[in-house]
Amino acid sequence: MKAPTLISLGLSAALALSSPLHAAEDPLKVGFVYVSPIGDAGWTYMHDRARKIVDKEFGDRVETTYVESVSEGSDSQRVIRNLSANGHDLIFTTSFGYMNPTLRVARQFPNVRYEHATGYKTAENVGNYQARAYQGRYLAGMAAGAMTETDTIGYVAGFPIPEVLRGINAFTLGVREVNPDASVSVSWINSWHDPAKERESAASLIRQDADVLTMHADSPAVVQAAQDEGVYGIGYNSNMKSYGPDAHLTSVMMHWEPIYQEKIQAVLNDSWEPESIWYGLSEGVVKMAPMHSDIPEAVVERINTHRDALINGDREVFQGPINNQDGEEIVAKGDALKDQQLLEINWYVEGIEGKLPN
């Protein structure tokens, strides 16, 4: 099997506007576009880990390539177009801001299949996929709520899009499930990957009495800051314990390989459809890292009970009663938010300090 290839960002002088259908005797060419460096932790690291798993699993039937550190916007459109023009049969675009660039390129290459992560738009040859990370966020919030002594928890966040707001709200619901007096303060950095900003925001939250930190960003900088400052930290995307062995309470981990296995197999079987899928704890896409030994056993048991209930469908994260930040009831007792409502969240739950950015 060929080693994975890092695709050049340059375009050839003459680009065809469509690609031929995949020939069964040739390996399926699968491309991945990453928003940040692969590194050894975080969002892109876990996508690339999944790429390596499927590359090994499918053997000579599949050839994978990737481009890392691709900015959202026009740069991503150029990279996606380049992959399409260079014979790729299936392309995964792995950041929210790649949604419209993916759709624009897809119209030019009708024989290429595209899968976009965390978006909500589809087309004849474009599907999308998401992880129900908010399920893990809720469980991590329970750990944070149990371990805070100041009743102030800090959250470093990338951009105020529904995916991030779902996570913040779910985390806060988990916090207040075990500690109704605790609150969550959010610091927005307007970036997916900026370790310096992430660390600066973490330090600012600690100065505001936060003694547990978490984040929706790509590097382990927040967990490192927690370790250095003697507070607790909760990782995201990958297990970040090595970056804060004393601080690390747990991590919400994204294992994308079940989705990549399913989508690649569907193209090989000629059964691929441009659908929207949303997998979580029950499908093994969302997992929790081991809990810190400081967390009381009774709290861990309670977290595990809630985890099992989410997996079995016996409860939902966003089940009523839920109030918004102003104390108005958003979800009544006995009701739960439906997926479409989760995709459109633009409000904070009760217990979050500060105003939502416009």
Rank of each mutant, 00 (worst) to 15 (best):
L28Y: 14
K29P: 04
K29L: 08
G31A: 14
G31L: 10
G31M: 09
F32S: 06
F32A: 05
F32Q: 05
F32C: 05
F32V: 06
F32H: 05
V33W: 07
V33T: 13
Y34T: 02
Y34N: 06
Y34M: 10
V35Q: 08
V35D: 11
V35K: 06
V35I: 15
P37I: 11
P37C: 11
G39E: 02
G39H: 03
G39W: 03
G39K: 05
G39D: 00
D40E: 11
D40C: 02
D40P: 01
A41Q: 07
A41Y: 07
A41C: 05
G42T: 08
G42K: 09
W43N: 14
W43S: 12
W43Q: 09
W43R: 10
T44E: 15
Y45T: 02
Y45P: 10
Y45C: 13
M46T: 15
M46F: 05
H47V: 09
H47M: 10
H47P: 10
D48Q: 12
D48H: 14
R49E: 03
R49H: 02
A50F: 07
A50N: 07
R51F: 10
R51H: 07
R51Y: 07
K52Q: 15
V54M: 02
V54A: 01
V54Q: 01
V54T: 05
V54W: 01
D55C: 09
D55Q: 15
D55T: 15
E57P: 04
E57A: 15
E57F: 15
F58I: 08
F58Q: 04
G59H: 02
G59K: 01
G59T: 02
D60N: 07
D60Q: 04
D60I: 00
R61P: 00
V62L: 12
E63Y: 05
E63K: 13
E63W: 03
T64V: 11
T64S: 08
T64E: 05
T64L: 06
T65L: 10
T65C: 11
Y66D: 06
Y66A: 12
V67H: 02
V67G: 03
E68R: 11
E68W: 04
S69C: 06
S69Y: 05
S69P: 02
V70W: 05
V70C: 09
V70P: 00
V70M: 11
S71W: 02
G73C: 05
G73W: 03
S74W: 01
S74E: 12
D75R: 04
D75W: 01
D75I: 04
S76D: 01
S76C: 02
S76R: 02
Q77R: 11
R78N: 09
V79Q: 10
V79M: 08
I80W: 07
I80Y: 08
I80M: 05
I80T: 09
R81H: 01
R81M: 08
N82S: 15
N82R: 13
N82V: 03
L83Y: 08
L83E: 12
L83P: 03
S84I: 00
S84L: 00
S84W: 00
A85K: 03
A85I: 03
N86L: 13
N86C: 11
N86M: 14
G87Y: 14
G87W: 13
